[in-house]
Simulated scan of single mutants.
Amino acid sequence: MNTELLHANFGWLHAPPFPPACCHCLIIRSEAGLMLVDTGIGMLDIKAPEERVGREAMQDAGFQFIESVTALAQIQQLGYSATDVSDIMLTHGDPDHVGGLADFPEARVHLAAEEKQQLETDDPRYRSAQFSHRPHWVTYDINDADWFGMPSRCVDTAVNIDVRLIPLPGHTSGHCGVAVQTEDRWFLHVGDAYYLRGELTDPQHPIGELAAFRATDNAQRLHSLARLQTCINEHSNAFDYCGYHDTSELPESVPGFEEIR
């Protein structure tokens, strides 16, 4: 089955003095339809931002509510409808990653069991309103395959391609990267394992202070970052990768913040 990996930005965050940050997601397109990696800021977030995102998060992260940037708007521009999205792989459950889930109520939503368990607590970093449509959760708790020396969890999707959750905990307890096999090589979306790619080579990167503040377990986050760096150094010829917020990783074809605003 021919599979195409499309890079998209499903949201903007801007909280000066920090520069604008994107919500870099993936669209996996095949003859069977579409799958997504994370969903960015959704349509319902735009309609009821305080209820779904929360005033504090809106201000601290600088959520920008732009309808044309949402996942639903962009897949419609590609000629698809919400029902064409069969599966969504989540790196984790923070509000800027899951807002679009409700726009695809029929999709199966895949995530680590540890993250799903945390979503069901009263942890203030998660917003229960974003899950009130009762997603079709599919959880994974067993590392059942090796992925370039890292443990992985095989994802059961509607499309016959190899998709893995790669545990990279620390930012949240169940944070995972998502690896997708294309025809010629793998692609790894690392989620928020780093905010900026420079963290992989600079242990004193200025953004590290914010990353540490946002981490559920910073020591675990740093360990995951080190494991990721080792994997990239040893197997960079086998896969490409990106994070969620680094605008320099977006293709040139994706409009920048100033263009959208």
Rank of each mutant, 00 (worst) to 15 (best):
Met1Ser: 15
Leu6Ala: 03
Trp12Lys: 01
Pro16Cys: 09
Pro16Met: 09
Pro20Gly: 10
Ala21Lys: 01
Cys23Phe: 01
Ile27Glu: 06
Ser30Lys: 13
Ser30Cys: 13
Ser30Ile: 08
Leu36Thr: 06
Gly40Ile: 03
Gly40Ala: 06
Gly42Ile: 01
Asp45Tyr: 02
Ile46Val: 11
Lys47Ala: 15
Pro49Gln: 03
Glu51Phe: 07
Glu51Lys: 09
Arg55Tyr: 06
Ala61Phe: 13
Ile66Asp: 08
Glu67Met: 10
Thr70Asp: 02
Leu72Asp: 00
Leu72Tyr: 00
Ile75Asp: 02
Ile75Gln: 03
Leu78Glu: 07
Leu78Tyr: 11
Ser81Thr: 14
Ser81Pro: 05
Val85Cys: 12
Ser86Tyr: 08
Leu90Gly: 06
His92Gln: 11
His97Trp: 06
His97Tyr: 02
Gly100Asn: 08
Phe104Leu: 04
Glu106Gln: 13
Ala107Ile: 10
Arg108Tyr: 08
Ala112Cys: 14
Ala113Ile: 05
Arg127Trp: 02
Phe131Ser: 11
Ser132Cys: 14
Ser132Ile: 07
Trp137Ala: 13
Asp141Thr: 07
Ser152Gln: 08
Ala158Arg: 15
Val163Arg: 03
Arg164Ser: 06
Pro169Asp: 01
Pro169Gln: 07
Gly177Lys: 08
Ala179Asp: 12
Val180Ser: 09
Thr182His: 13
Asp184Asn: 15
Tyr195Thr: 00
Gly198His: 02
Leu200Phe: 09
Asp202Gln: 04
His205Ser: 07
His205Arg: 05
Pro206His: 01
Phe213Tyr: 11
Phe213Ser: 12
Asp217Phe: 01
Asn218Asp: 14
Asn218Tyr: 10
Arg221Met: 08
His223Gly: 09
Leu225Asn: 02
Thr230Arg: 14
Ser236Val: 12
Cys242Thr: 01
Thr247Pro: 00
Pro251Ser: 09
Pro251Lys: 06
Ser253Asp: 11
Glu259Tyr: 14
Ile260Tyr: 03
